[in-house]
Each structure stands twice: as C-alpha cells, then as structure tokens.
Simulated assay, not measured.
Amino acid sequence: MMLVELTAPPIEALPVAGLRTHLRLGTGFEIAEDATETAALAGFLRAAIATIEARTGKVLLARQFRLRLDDWRDPEGQPLPLAPVTAIERVEIDDGAGRITVAAPDTWGLQPDMQRPMLVPRGAWLPGVPDAGFATVTFSAGFGAVWDAVPDDLAHAVLLLAARYYEDRGFEGNALAVPFGVSALIERWRAVRVLGGRGVSRKRA
C-alpha cells in the first residue's frame, strides 16, 4: 500500500492568528505579525496537524489523496486508511504494462464511516486487479476546508502541540514528545488501525 497526499491546506486555512493569540497569552511576549513569523507559525501548525492526524487517522483540513494497492484486501469492500472521507473521485486499474482502465463510477461507491470508510462495489465485486497490476483510488478527506470545521477538541490539541513545538524549537530531543493534555484531547478520536480489511487478498486476472 502506498498513500500519497496530493494537495495541502493553504496557509489561509491554518489558525495562525489563533496560535499567535495562544502564544501571547501563554508567554506574555508580543509576536510580530510579519511574513517571516507567519511562515514560522504556519510551519509549527502543519507539524502539529501532521502529528495529530498520524495518531488519530483523521484528516483535519480537507485535501486530496491517492491510495495505491497491489490488490483489494477484500473485493466486497476496501477499507480506506483515513477518515472522514467525503468523496471518491476515481478508481483506476493498471495492468502492470502501463494500460490503465478507469472503473465506471456506477460500479463502485463510498460507504462513509468516521472510523473505517470503505470503497464498496455497486455489484458483487470491485474491479479485478491483474497479477502484475495495481489499483489506484483517488479520494478527498477532511472535516472541512476551513478551521472552524475541525472539531473543538482536535483544534485545541493542534494549538497546544504547535505551541509546544514553538517553545521547544531548536531542541530536537523534544520534537517527538506529545504532551499528556494533547493525548487526552485526541484519545476519543483514535482508531485501531486495521488496514487489512475483512478478508484475504485475492488477485483476479
């Protein structure tokens, strides 16, 4: 399995002003609102968002992803590794020789779920994947395109973690530490990662 992020949230969608206010209240220092400082704060926010997403499997801000699979785990339904998935744009089958077939949209659909969304067939099975080939699923996921769409506890966890990264900048030993308060905020969103699906992979020519 290979998952690639195709798009990234624009800086305008990041809560830079909220982090600036949070830091001001937390430390008492004024933060200059210039381009350099804004870029730095955005970087801490992106790092915090990536950490929260990695620990929960939830995509905070909407963006597009591409999932490549050697085969479906189960032809009756392929679990997707992120949530919430808002749309599946395209399903493609590559025969391994460079010939790509786009599966007709009326042959598959999205089964939404906050923990385990799935690509499901409209008929009996998902399209067959040749032995030397692979399947590619392009989909969009995220709570929304703006920060206000992110659940409050996850949004607050991001601000706390970004502030920690800001305060610990330059100290690489603390870079991977997640404060207890952040862990407590995200705990209910964490899902057991069962990417394997329901059955056993079966190649079908």
Rank of each mutant, 00 (worst) to 15 (best):
D148W: 01
P117Q: 02
E89I: 12
L45C: 10
A35Y: 15
L23W: 02
L3M: 08
D94N: 15
V178G: 08
A124R: 08
D113C: 09
L126K: 07
L6D: 07
V120H: 08
Q78F: 07
G173P: 05
G28I: 02
E33L: 04
F134M: 05
Y166R: 06
V59T: 02
Q115G: 14
R169W: 11
A155N: 00
A48K: 11
L69F: 12
E187M: 13
A47P: 03
G43I: 15
P81D: 15
A13L: 01
L3F: 00
R190K: 02
T38A: 14
L69S: 11
A155L: 00
Q115D: 01
E92Y: 05
Y166V: 05
G142M: 00
R116I: 04
V91T: 02
R169H: 09
T107P: 04
I49D: 05
V178S: 06
L154N: 02
R122D: 05
E37G: 11
T86K: 03
E33V: 12
T136D: 02
E33Q: 06
G181P: 09
G28V: 12
V194T: 08
V59F: 00
S140I: 11
A32P: 08
T101K: 14
A135W: 10
G181F: 02
L41D: 09
G43K: 13
T107R: 14
R193K: 07
D34E: 12
A39M: 07
Q78W: 04
A163G: 15
G170I: 14
L159R: 05
L23K: 09
L19Y: 00
D152I: 08
E187I: 01
A32G: 03
E172L: 13
V137N: 04
V200W: 14
P130K: 14
G199W: 12
L160F: 01
L41A: 15
V85A: 10
D152M: 08
A149G: 02
L14W: 01
R190N: 01
I11L: 06
L185S: 04
P15V: 03
P151Y: 01
L45P: 08
R66G: 07
A17F: 03
A32R: 03
F171H: 15
V192F: 07
A47S: 12
S201I: 09
L161Q: 02
R63E: 00
G123E: 13
D153L: 09
E33T: 12
L6A: 11
M118G: 12
A157D: 04
S201Y: 11
Y165P: 04
V129C: 12
T86L: 00
G197N: 07
Q78D: 08
R193M: 14
P10T: 01
G96I: 15
S140H: 08
T27V: 09
R122T: 10
L160N: 00
G144W: 02
A162K: 04
V59H: 00
Y165F: 14
T138Q: 09
A141R: 04
A32Y: 13
G77H: 06
P10E: 11
A163R: 06
L23R: 04
K58N: 03
D153C: 01
L41K: 14
